[in-house]
Nucleic acid binder design. Structure first.
Length: 141
DNA sequence: GCCAACGTTGGC
DNA sequence: GCCAACGTTGGC
């Protein structure tokens, strides 16, 4: 029986040098492992199948590049040799037509409260539905 | 390459 | 439990 809970919205960061959107698309999906920050881990654990996730490139041309979906909720991170860490599975849905750069996000007063700006070092963060849709619209509009 | 912000570690 | 030192992240 499929649950009818509405999806939640997230943003995950990755340096394109470490794992780029294009590699993600080529792979057709990936295990989101290696998160070693408690707050980010707790966000991973709050993800559920079907949630929508923005894929953000940090450091090099920082920008949102595409939309992904959670295909498996949190499970123990297989890359963790010690400690209590989690991973999820993600698959790419579609690239944004235009990158939505960090500068674009900063310029938009409606996105002033986004966690990306408030907590610049957090690598997995929740978004409101509005924030998610606004960024997707910027990227596809 | 630099530096600010922030999380973690360890001494006390 | 506090806080200084240190390491890492990430923007510029």
């Amino acid at each position: 029986m499929k649950k009818s809970t509405s999806p939640s919205y997230w943003l995950v960061k990755q340096e394109p040098i470490a794992y780029s959107w294009s590699t993600f698309v080529k792979d057709g999906g990936t295990e989101w492992t290696g998160v070693r920050n408690f707050q980010a881990r707790n966000n991973l654990r709050a993800m559920k199948k079907g949630d929508q996730v923005l894929f953000y490139h940090s450091v090099v041309n920082p920008s949102v590049v595409g939309v992904a979906e959670v295909t498996q909720a949190a499970y123990p991170d297989p890359t963790a040799t010690e400690g209590d860490w989690s991973a999820v599975k993600l698959k790419p849905l579609h690239a944004l037509k235009n990158l939505v750069t960090l500068a674009d996000i900063k310029k938009d007063a409606r996105l002033a409260d986004i966690a990306l700006l408030k907590q610049s070092r957090l690598s997995v963060m929740p978004l409101t539905e509005k924030e998610f849709e606004m960024i997707v619209e910027k990227g596809n509009g």
